[in-house]
Design a protein around this nucleic acid. Structure first.
Lengths: 232, 232
DNA sequence: AGACGGGGGATTGTCGACATTATTAGCGAT
DNA sequence: ATCGCTAATAATGTCGACAATCCCCCGTCT
C-alpha cells in the first residue's frame, strides 16, 4: 500500500518506458546528431533517471536499429548511409505491399471512412499549396493502412523501419511535381482498397513506393553536400 | 601491458551477450514452454549471472518478439498462436521474395558454388530417405540466399521472424510428398539465381513460400492435440 | 624528432540492496 | 459457505557503488 505521497510528483508510472520514448523521440527528431556518442551518465542526468533505465532504453534502441552499441565502448546514434536508406526503403516497400493487399481484403466501412477523411485532407492542403502539411499527412495515411491490414507483425516491422529512415523523408517532397503525383498514387491505392481488390492494391502500392524510391535516389544525388564531418 | 592472467575460462568476453544467446537458445529449443514465466532471480542463478544481465537479455528478447513483458508483472515466453504463425510466414515470404530478387542480381561465382553445394547435399539426403536431414539443410539454403543478397536490414528481419515461428517448422515435412516438391522448388530458385534473373527468382520464391504456407495451414489443421496445459 | 610504454581520466559492465507493486493466503463478517 | 478486507509473500523497478576496460596524454628512450 502506498504510504503518504513522498515529494515526487510522478515517480514511476513506467519511468523506464518514458525514458525509452523520450530518447527515441530525441533521436528521430534529430536532437542527437548521427554518430554522436550517447554517454549513459549524461543521459541519466539529462532525463532525470538512473543509469539502469537509460541502459535498458539503449538496448531496445540498439535492437531497433536506431543506435549502435559496441562492447565497452558505449552507444552512438546510428548513422544510416544513403545506401542503407535505399535498402530500408526497399524492405519497407515489400512489407507495405503485403499490408496494402491485406488491407484491401479486410477493410471495413469504418476503415474506409477514415482513409477517405485523410485523403480529402491531403487534397485540401495540397490545393492550397501547403506542401509540408501534405507530407505530414502522408505517414498518417500509411499508418491507417497498416491498421486496416490487422497484421501486427508486419505493422511493427514497418514502423521501426520507417523510424530508421525518417531523416530522409523531408527531402523527397522538394522534387518538382512530386506532391501532385504522390497524391494521385495515394488515390489509386485508396480506390483499390475500397474495391476490395488485393491484387490492385498490391500493384498500386508497388508503383507508389517505386516512385518514392526513385525520388529518394534523386534526392540523394542532388543533395547539397556529402556528409559533413565535425570532429568530436 | 602485463598479460599474466590468460587461463581464465570465461572471465568476461561479453557476459551479457552470452546470457542473451543462451536464453534465446533455450527458448527456441523449447526448453522453456510457451507462456512459462521467466523469473529474473531464477534465471540469474541458473545462468550464473547477475540480474542486470538477465534483464537486459529479456529486454532484447522482448523487442525481438520471443518474450512478452508486462510492467511490474515480469516476462513470459511468448506464445505464438496459429494465426500469428501464419502472419509471420506471410511477412517472411514478402521479405524472402525481395532477398531472392536481390540475390539473383548480385550473386557471385562463389555464392553460386556454395548454394550448389548445399543443394546437392539436399538431393543426396533426400534420395537416401533422410527427411529430417533434408529439413535441417533447408534453413542453410535460405541463409545463403540472404547472405548473397547483401541486404543486412532484410536479413536481420527475416532471421528474427524465422526464430519466432521455428516451433512450427518440423511439422511441415510430415506431409506426404512434401519433401520432393520442396526440393524441386529449391532447384527452381537456384536456377533463377544462377541465371541472374531477378524476376524469375522472385516468382520461384513466391511459389515456394506459398506452398510452405499452404502446407503450414494443412499442418495446423491436422495437428494432433491442442496445446496441452501443464500446471505451473 | 619519432616511437614506445606507462599512467590518469573517463565510461562502461556488473552486482547486490532497497523501495514499489502484484499476487496470494488467511481471517472474519454477513 | 461466500464475499470482502487485510496481511504476508514474491517478484519487479530503480538506484548507486565498485571493478574492469578503453582511450588519450605525456614522459622517456633510442
Amino acid at each position: 500500500m502506498a504510504r503518504s505521497e513522498l515529494r515526487r510528483p510522478a515517480p514511476a508510472p513506467e519511468l523506464g518506458l518514458d525514458v525509452y520514448r523520450r530518447l527515441r523521440e530525441g533521436i528521430i527528431a534529430g536532437r542527437f546528431q548521427p554518430n554522436e556518442r550517447l554517454v549513459e551518465a549524461n543521459l541519466s542526468r539529462m532525463l532525470g533517471a538512473g543509469r539502469t533505465a537509460v541502459r535498458a532504453a539503449l538496448v531496445r534502441l540498439d535492437q531497433e536499429g536506431l543506435v549502435t552499441r559496441e562492447h565497452n565502448r558505449g552507444a552512438r546514434v546510428r548513422l544510416v548511409s544513403d545506401q542503407e536508406a535505399l535498402q530500408i526503403e526497399e524492405v519497407r516497400a515489400a512489407l507495405e505491399r503485403l499490408l496494402a493487399r491485406q488491407a484491401a481484403a479486410k477493410a471495413t466501412a469504418s476503415d474506409i471512412r477514415e482513409l477517405r477523411h485523410v485523403l480529402v485532407d491531403m487534397r485540401k492542403r495540397l490545393s492550397s499549396g501547403d506542401a509540408i502539411g501534405y507530407s505530414e499527412l502522408n505517414p498518417k495515411f500509411h499508418q491507417l493502412i497498416w491498421a486496416t491490414a490487422r497484421n501486427p507483425t508486419a505493422g511493427r516491422l514497418v514502423g521501426t523501419l520507417k523510424s530508421q529512415s525518417l531523416r530522409f523523408q523531408y527531402q523527397t517532397m522538394l522534387r518538382p511535381g512530386r506532391p501532385q503525383r504522390s497524391l494521385r498514387e495515394h488515390e489509386l491505392i485508396f480506390s483499390a482498397i475500397v474495391a476490395h481488390d488485393p491484387e490492385a492494391a498490391d500493384a498500386a502500392m508497388r508503383d507508389h513506393l517505386e516512385e518514392v524510391i526513385e525520388t529518394l535516389r534523386w534526392a540523394i544525388g542532388h543533395k547539397s553536400r556529402p556528409p559533413q564531418w565535425l570532429p568530436d
